[in-house]
Design a protein around this nucleic acid. Structure first.
Length: 270
DNA sequence: ATGCCCACGACACGTGGA
């Protein structure tokens, strides 16, 4: 049974958390990993260590802030370094690639959506502009009927089931109705929230703030997601949130999420 | 209680994160 495993992790500085990353890669061995907040330029990215583990690399780097990368055990072809419609984005938040496996082809989109706080303000407007461009592009590529995986840190808490205290967070940019509406709109156009195809369980989080003892209190947010096309949804087999990484020494404040797909030519639905 | 913690840049503390 051929499978393809795709993971996403906001690493909060790839250099500061490189030992964690290498350990995790050797344990989990995903075929593809989407990294956000690498916080470094391509020339200072620890490429050698990662390539030695058998990964091809695409990097959209930025000094100090943001920055995204795609790791792939399969050959990887760059499609876009900018979200269409955000072609002059000064912030490195997007990478789109085609990954040709055998036999399936996958369109992989790595997003680091702007946080948008404080609300209201310029940063919130930038977030909405970014989400509108993502909504339009996501809808456009559905026509290709491909295996599409849009993964990353969306900085959106989709529903009140995805946050430890919905009332305290109701006016935060991650919870604002405008942010949630874009998330729902992408779902309504035909994508699925991969985790929600698997479970309706509440309090499944991917982020716990460093402050105020949020991790020991179990007070987190679900803001890292996979939005997948109908073709990819038909292939989805499993979604895992790797919660234990948050308990490690000096961790990222986000944990990895993994999605496993059937990667056979036919799916056994004859 | 927009602070508590953490990373960055580059030396002191300001900016950004969520």
């Amino acid at each position: 049974m051929k499978k393809l495993s795709i993971a996403s992790w906001n690493i909060n500085s790839v250099r500061a958390h490189l030992p964690h990353l290498l350990n995790w890669l050797s344990r989990r061995n995903p075929d593809v990993l989407l990294l956000q907040e690498i916080k470094t330029m391509a020339d200072t990215f620890p490429a050698k260590e990662i390539e030695e583990m058998g990964y091809n690399l695409l990097i959209s780097g930025q000094k100090t802030y943001n920055g995204v990368a795609i790791l792939s055990k399969y050959p990887i072809q760059l499609e876009n370094k900018f979200l269409p419609g955000m072609d002059h984005d000064p912030q490195a938040r997007y990478l789109e690639a085609i990954i040709e496996t055998n036999p399936c082809v996958w369109r992989i989109i790595n997003v680091y959506v702007p946080n948008g706080n404080p609300y209201p303000g310029d940063k919130f407007s930038y977030k909405l502009q970014w989400l509108e461009a993502l909504r339009q592009y996501a809808q456009k590529i559905l026509a290709f009927e491909e295996n599409v995986v849009i993964g990353g840190d969306f900085n959106i808490i989709p529903t009140d089931d995805d946050v430890y205290d919905p009332v305290a967070w109701q006016d935060d940019a991650l919870c604002r109705p405008e942010s949630r509406q874009f998330f729902r709109s992408i779902l309504n156009s035909g994508y699925s929230d991969a985790l929600r195809l698997q479970t309706n369980e509440k309090k499944l989080y991917t982020f716990w703030d460093y402050q105020a003892g949020r991790w020991p209190r179990g007070e987190g947010l679900r803001i890292d997601h996979f939005l997948i096309s109908p073709q990819a949804a038909d292939r989805l087999q499993q979604v895992v949130i790797d919660k234990h990484t948050r308990a490690e020494e000096k961790p990222s404040d986000h944990v990895p999420i993994l999605a496993q797909f059937n990667n056979q030519e036919t799916q056994g639905i004859e």
